[in-house]
Amino acid sequence: MTARPVFPFAAIVGQDDMKLAMLIAAVDQGIGGVLAFGDRGTGKSTTVRALAALLPPMKAIAGCRYHCDPTTPDAWCAECHEKGKGKAVTVPVPVVDLPLGATEDRVVGALDLERALTGQKVFEPGLLARANRGFLYIDEVNLLEDHLVDLLLDVAASGENVVEREGLSIRHPAKFVLIGSGNPEEGDLRPQLIDRFGLSVEVRTPTDLPTRIEVIRRRDAFERDPVPFLDHWHKAQDKLRRKIVTGRGRLPNVSVADEALEHAARLCMALGTDGLRGELTLIRAARALAALDGDDAVTDAHLRRVSCMVLGHRLRRNPLDEAVASTRVTRAVEEVLGA
């Protein structure tokens, strides 16, 4: 059993927004997913793949197909409820790829074909089951069939997948962070879909020469001889991994002062974002960032850093305003929080 080497997360040059969004989602999985939209060849997929290799492992009930968490019996699947708490094992956090061309039966799960041919009815969990407690990644999310996207969003929102097949009715937990990436030039994402992602980052090609050179250098070194490259980055990877772990531990204790809440509300009002989801996500992301940074309270600095990725995609589009969303957010941030 061999695996293809994965470019280490710590070695990715630039793309700070995207990396930060991924780390925030790793600290607080309830953030509502990450959408990375942008130029070609900017390492969107590389970053997600790298995240898989970075995430700290988790505890799961041995033999459970949905890798239920032994510590939260409320969220167990039916089988775990039946059997009771089994042995806990450490498993890697699943980062499941939803390839274009996947059929619905493989996404939601269906009867096991092999057993069906011999006359047995056994549920074969799909990708949603595999992604439970982890990440579900869709590259080129804008090219995915509409009915699949709708289905994914429904499941992502409810945290539960319901399958009715051949007289069998299965219900299992499916809580995952949806990560979508794509290039707007190949087709836009439906606006109602964009809103449902918690964070959205715009990925741009680095424009300064030294960064670009460094990207090429590392990539070339990695492609030519991955082993020493990975060895070299091993320590940095470990450090980053520890940061996620401590961040998760700290998260419940990060306080949000009234002032921060007020600033978040004023920011959303200044930008005219619809609904409260923007404010909630803003606070949540800022809190995850504070935890990641090792801070005890959410400050304006945290709000400032996450404001673009939280609010940028929730603005009402004014087609004739040539200003990019991020500029509008930055403007509002300067107004509310001061330059």
């Binding site: 059993m1 695996a3 290799a53 492992p57 890697p92 980062v95 499941v96 790829d97 595999r130």
Partner: peptide
């Protein structure tokens, strides 16, 4: 964090 043998899940090599 030894990866599961399932190859569709991306695990840490």
């Amino acid at each position: 964090m030894a990866p599961l043998p399932d190859s569709t899940e991306r695990t840490a090599p």
